[in-house]
Design a protein around this nucleic acid. Structure first.
Lengths: 154, 154
DNA sequence: TTAACATAGTTGCATATGCAACTAATTTAA
DNA sequence: TTAAATTAGTTGCATATGCAACTATGTTAA
């Protein structure tokens, strides 16, 4: 097996790009007065798709540990964007609902998000985009196949 | 401008993949008795490339804020992998050096890293890889162009 | 039916991260 | 040459993250 030069592999590109998109996200949200981190935004988005989801399910679909998600919920709950409702049918679970204020800020975030994605994909053809997404998904499958399921729910 | 469906863009792929590579990295390092996070590994790698670098330069090349890097150094210093040396020429700067123990663990990490990259890129052709890296770099440039330089040193 | 097991969520602990404000040291410009 | 600006690093504060161990509840199997 040939020796691999770290810099020539896809690994550093992925890491750097994730960082840069995070910075960009944070910049534009801040500039537009959207008081959300990208993690918080993702939670609101998943609730906007389907309101009242159970904490553990949210953890699963956002690829987080249940610990991390629980604390994210606490943060957005404090901000008044979601409410945690303890189920009476199954007393173990919490269902999470978007509040009116949560719906409002999510709605306001959408055009900003569109700008972010436009800026991101600027000058890149649809073919390039779809083949890139395709490769990224393949890599993802390689990893999931091998990653042992832990508390992370993967 | 056409309405963008978040799920169809490259954004979620990037985020998820970064997470999954992180999990995989952590799994394999743990299984192989390498007591390093991916962030710590990157710092050791940069020092292995060029020993004695200044904190701020390390922050720049690893795309971190100087705060974050300073604390990373403190962590790996406590583990005994690097030493912080206060310069006598310019009393503002710290130069960071790999210790023998740091060199040793980095050397032990290399084959593990090779495995990670092999697993990651498994079943993906060289053409796919290089075009993907190319697109990711384009996106990165789009973002850097627009991101205002802050303490992050970008 | 009750004991074993599984599930949902929380807490403690450790790491990583960035911004703003700060100190100390160096460089630049008046 | 001295005052102003810049640079390197640290500290406080807030967020995000995961693992292990824990509690409470619910399900399953003997």
């Amino acid at each position: 097996m040939r020796k691999i030069i770290f810099e020539n592999t896809i690994l550093p590109s992925i890491g750097k790009l994730a960082k840069f998109t995070g910075f960009y996200f944070s910049d534009l949200f801040h500039e537009n007065g959207i008081d959300l981190t990208k993690e918080q935004w993702l939670v609101l988005k998943k609730l906007h798709d389907k309101n009242g989801q159970v904490q553990n399910d949210l953890a699963f679909i956002t690829n987080r540990s249940k610990t991390s998600l629980a604390r994210l919920i606490t943060t957005v709950e404090k901000k008044g964007y979601v409410s945690r409702i303890h189920s009476k049918i199954d007393k173990r679970i919490n269902q999470i609902y978007l509040t009116e204020s949560g719906k409002e800020i999510f709605k306001r975030s959408l055009p900003v998000m569109q700008n972010i994605i436009n800026d991101l994909q600027d000058g890149i053809t649809n073919d390039e985009l779809s083949s890139t997404i395709n490769v990224l998904n393949k890599i993802q499958k390689n990893l999931i196949k091998k990653h042992k399921t832990k508390q992370t729910n993967l």
